[in-house]
Design a protein around this nucleic acid. Sequence first.
DNA 1: GTCTATATCTGGATAGAC
DNA 2: GTCTATCCAGATATAGAC
Lengths: 207, 207
Amino acid sequence: MALSNEVAENAEVGRKGILDAAAQLFGRQGYGAVSLRMIAESAGIKAGSIYYHFASKDAIITEILDAGIQAVHDEVRDRLAALDADAPARDVLRAVIHGHLGALLEHGDYTSANVRIFGQVPPAVRDANLPVRRAYENFLDDLLSDLQTQGAIRGDINLPRFRLMLFGALNATLEWFDPQKGDAEGLADDYADMFLNGILNRDGEKI
Amino acid sequence: MALSNEVAENAEVGRKGILDAAAQLFGRQGYGAVSLRMIAESAGIKAGSIYYHFASKDAIITEILDAGIQAVHDEVRDRLAALDADAPARDVLRAVIHGHLGALLEHGDYTSANVRIFGQVPPAVRDANLPVRRAYENFLDDLLSDLQTQGAIRGDINLPRFRLMLFGALNATLEWFDPQKGDAEGLADDYADMFLNGILNRDGEKI
DNA sequence: GTCTATATCTGGATAGAC
DNA sequence: GTCTATCCAGATATAGAC
């Protein structure tokens, strides 16, 4: 009986256990600071065993990076799908911001690992992640383009530049926001308000 | 004659040569990817010689991080000082954005190194950089607070949160903007416009 | 599928000659 | 102030037992 139990326990670690442990460590400590020994210990196995599942450290990173983008893309897509077909532009943009920020701050080590370590990995690994990134960028650019054509977004806004600005601001929240202490949805509300309406007081114009 | 020339050449490398080489490499490749041997080679000396000037790799980083923040702080302060005393809030905020972005993108390896590697260095090094960061943050918070009291910034804007959002968006430009190809001042104009006025079309409200 | 043991390399750091 | 030579710790990765 002991044998079959041990086998079952070992089998549970496996590939996913390594990926989960690695994603958590990379997201918190960065690419260079995390060794295969640390990943192995966190996953409950020995360092050498990792090579049964992955060919290299970079192979692990590559998979984590792709999963991270995909999770954000999926979350944003789902929130948009939940809207009414005739939802106003404000709600569409809010859904994007809430989805992106929610995936980043609340769901998961893969998304935060992606944001944190993408700039630190070797160029070859970065290149491998580009197709998935591009797909998400194109998805958003199409959406924004529609909103601008409809007249909801000002015509003089440079859309790719706005997207880069938005991503920069949203992704940077990882560096200081703690979802345990603060309210991620409230943060998304504040950000959406600033992006959509600006910070200047317009009382003078309205009156 | 040869002797004195050689001494002069060697003396020119020294402390500053090491810092400059290190800042450039760190800013481009990240903390973990840059070794002391690489820094030494780029500075034109051997790795062992670095320890005449610095006690450790972290001592080099610490100095670069402080210089980076200070350069941005100085640039923003100077641009504000160049304004008329009764300059409108729009111009004050524009000066901040132009100064921060200008220091980041055009003047120097130290500022970009700071943004790129701050999240990668050991905690002790990060802590050492905090006082200089805090000083810049407090400087901006005081400025924003004045503008809000005057009624220029909407009363319901959470100022520390706006500052974090602003920094996130501005600092992220390092990841994609190339000042050789694009116009940094034009970029600052676009960003300032989006932050101050928002991206939504307001024609309907005005008419 | 995981273990132990180890090969190989590269990193930061030190000592002493010049 | 810089060089050469070297120590030592820690990294990725491999080989073969179980």
